[in-house]
Each structure stands twice: as C-alpha cells, then as structure tokens.
Simulated assay, not measured.
Amino acid sequence: MKTTGDQQLVKRINRSVLLRLLRAQPGLSRARLATESGLTKSTVSLLVRELLDDGWLTEAGETVNEGLGRPSTPLRIHEGRRALIGVEIAVQVVRVVCVTLQGEILHSEEQPLASTTPARACQQTARMVATAYQGITALGLQLVGVGACTPGAIDHDTGKVLFAPNLGWRQLDLLSLLTRALAEVGLPPVPVQLQNDADAGALGEYEFADGEGEDPLIFVSCDVGVGAGIVSNDRLFSGAQGMAGEIGHTIMQIDGPLCSCGRKGCAEAFIGLRALSGQNGAAVDLSRSGHYLGVLLQNLWTTFNPRAIVVGGKSCDHHPEFLQSAIDTVAQYAASAGMPPPSVRTARYGQLASAVGAAALTLHEYLRPMHPNSEARRARAGQTAPPP
C-alpha cells in the first residue's frame, strides 16, 4: 500500500485546486478558499502556508471584512517569482516568449526560421530560449518550464512529430532534439514539452482567460497550414494519435486543388496562406476564401458546440476582410437554422498566440496532477517530481 505516495498525490491535487481558484478569482481569502474548494479550513491554512513559503502565493497588504470574525487577508498568485517560456517553430519563423503565471508577456522575439533541418531548427530555437532565460533571471524570476509547439500531428506519448508536411517532418523525435539543444546552451533542467501549434493556441486562450476559462473552446490557426485546437472538459482533446483538429486536411471539395499533404481539395488548399497569397497559381478571391473558412467554422460549431471559437494566424492578420467574410458566413448559417451564432473572435495574443499557449503547457499540467499524460511527460523529461 503506497500510503506516502497517495498522501503526496492528494496534497498535490489540493494545492492545484487552490492555485486554480486563485488564478480564476484573485483575492480570495483562506475562508473563501475553504468554502469554494470544499476543503477544511485547517487543510487550507496548511496548504496556503506551504504555497506562501514556496513562493506560489503572496498576501495582499490590505484586509477585508467577510462578516463576523477577524478581517481576512486576500491571497494572489505571486507573479514576481516564476515565469514560463514558450516556443513556436513555425514554417517560416521561430517565436519565443516569456510570460508570467497569469499570461503577461515579459519578452518576445521572432526570427526567420534559418533551416527546416531538425537539428539546425532546434539549435536556433535553443539560442533564442537562452537569451530569453537570461532576461528572466535578470528579473529574479525562476523558470518553471519550456513549452514548444509546431504545426502537424504530435504523438503525446512519445513526443514525436508524426506528420508535419509543411516542414517536411515525419516520425521525428523533435522533443529529444530540442531538449538536447537546450541543455547544450546551458538551460537548467526544467520540464520541456511539445504540442501542436493550434492545440497550444487553444491552451493559451483557455489558461490565460479573464476569470473562468471558456469550455469547450476551439482555436483555429490560419497560417501556411490550417489546424484547430480543442479544449473540452478542462483538457486538450488530441485524439488517439494526436491527430484531432487537423482540419486543414479535411476535404472541402472532391478533386479540388492539390494540398501540401498530397491529397486534393483540403481546406488548406483554399484558406492556407499560400492560397490567399496566390502562390498556388489560382486567382485570389478573399470573400470566397472567407466563405470556405466560414463553412469550416460552422462545421466545428455543429460538431463540438463550443462556447467560443478563436481564430488566429497570419491569414487573419494580413487579410481582415477574409475573417469578416467567415464570421458573416457563420451568422448566415445560424440564421438559417434559427439559432444564435457562436462567439467567434480573434486571438488575444495575435501572432504570438501559439507561443504563449506553448508557455502555458507546463502550468496547465502542473495544475492538473491527475492528467493522464502528466506522469509520462515528466518521465520523458527525466523528472521524478513536478516543477517547484
């Protein structure tokens, strides 16, 4: 009987409950935390003391009256203690960001991707991460972990890129390559995790939302490639092999234009950045392309019934009329069905959405110790315990 292990897991779960409550509702007192969490006041008091000592929480200077008894002290996440680093290795660029535990951007850098050769791409990324790490250490912040994302299907059990046609990567152990490159530039041993770019974008929108996160939430990335990240029931929905959300390769027209994946008629061939820029040789009609995106969004709406659909990527930033046409198309379908349209909005962090979401990976799993992938990912990273 693993009594000690079970007690440690229960403690981690209870700590995560309190941290998640305070991220959603900053300023709760110990008494309110006990009420909201269902934990006893003595348990909350002990856990809060630990979290204060560990630097996860800070006490506000003022006190508030909550009825009878002594005034209560508001508690908040200590944003001046820890930071997260996020990386996006995209088809044309590499982006690196540093963010606080609440999603405030402290640092960002973008460079053209020097090479799609995996080792060189990881070395370039590692150098950018090293620069970012120097910045946060100069601010006196402790690095919690590094999250990375890239377009394509990611096998979360192995950390491999199964299929990234726009980068020419198949069955690539990118996580191992990146972890090695980060060690070579002197980064301290911290969790390093890999995710699909659209999944990361969804996670950033969800984790760093104001108040309670929108659930279900779908993030649609319209860049060189097209993909969707889906948050449902407080976790990413990635499918059996990490292929969920590969909407760029859903067929929108039988025997349509050739796609980078080798099939014909994929959504990417109609609404990917190459198509919108006329690189595929076809005439560009942004209104019609936006209609195709609208059809895709309406299909996601009727399939998942999300609270929000967030759309980001270069295609939307460079062609706002393209996105507006898509929103109008969704509204027309909703009107035809006699239903209110879903909430469709642009990404909170713009083109940094996926990099910021990658930064949220470590925090997301730390706050969910019962997540089925958490232990496996820590084992791959050589960790026996969660990040401090």
Rank of each mutant, 00 (worst) to 15 (best):
A308S: 02
A334N: 01
L273M: 15
P306L: 01
N299G: 02
K314A: 10
G272D: 09
G350E: 11
R274T: 13
Q298Y: 02
Y349C: 11
A355T: 13
A355H: 11
P369Q: 00
W301F: 07
A347D: 13
A267F: 09
A358P: 01
T302K: 07
A335C: 11
R377M: 15
L293A: 06
V344Y: 00
A326I: 00
S289L: 05
L300E: 12
A359R: 05
T303E: 05
T346A: 10
Y333N: 01
P342V: 02
A269G: 08
A335P: 04
G272M: 10
P372L: 02
P387G: 08
G262I: 15
N373A: 15
Q332D: 08
G294N: 05
R274K: 09
S343C: 11
C266W: 04
N373R: 14
H318R: 14
S287F: 05
S374L: 13
L300W: 01
R263W: 08
R380N: 14
H371G: 06
A308R: 07
E375Y: 15
A334P: 03
Q332G: 01
W301L: 01
Y366C: 06
A385C: 12
V295E: 08
G281N: 02
P386V: 12
T302E: 03
V330S: 00
A275N: 06
P387E: 06
C316T: 11
T303A: 09
H371D: 15
A283L: 15
K314G: 07
P340S: 08
R307K: 02
A282C: 03
A275L: 04
H318W: 08
P387S: 03
Y292W: 13
A326G: 00
A353E: 05
H319L: 14
H291V: 09
F322I: 03
P386K: 14
E375Q: 14
D328N: 05
S325I: 07
R263K: 05
L323Y: 03
T302V: 01
N280E: 12
M339A: 09
Y349K: 05
P341M: 04
S315L: 00
I271E: 00
L367M: 11
R274I: 08
W301M: 00
A337K: 10
R378P: 02
Q351F: 04
P387L: 08
H319D: 10
A308I: 05
V295A: 02
Y333Q: 05
Y349L: 13
N280D: 15
E365K: 14
P369T: 07
H319M: 10
L352C: 04
G265P: 05
L361E: 10
A376C: 02
K264F: 07
F270E: 15
P340T: 06
A359Q: 01
R348T: 07
A359F: 04
S315D: 07
L293W: 00
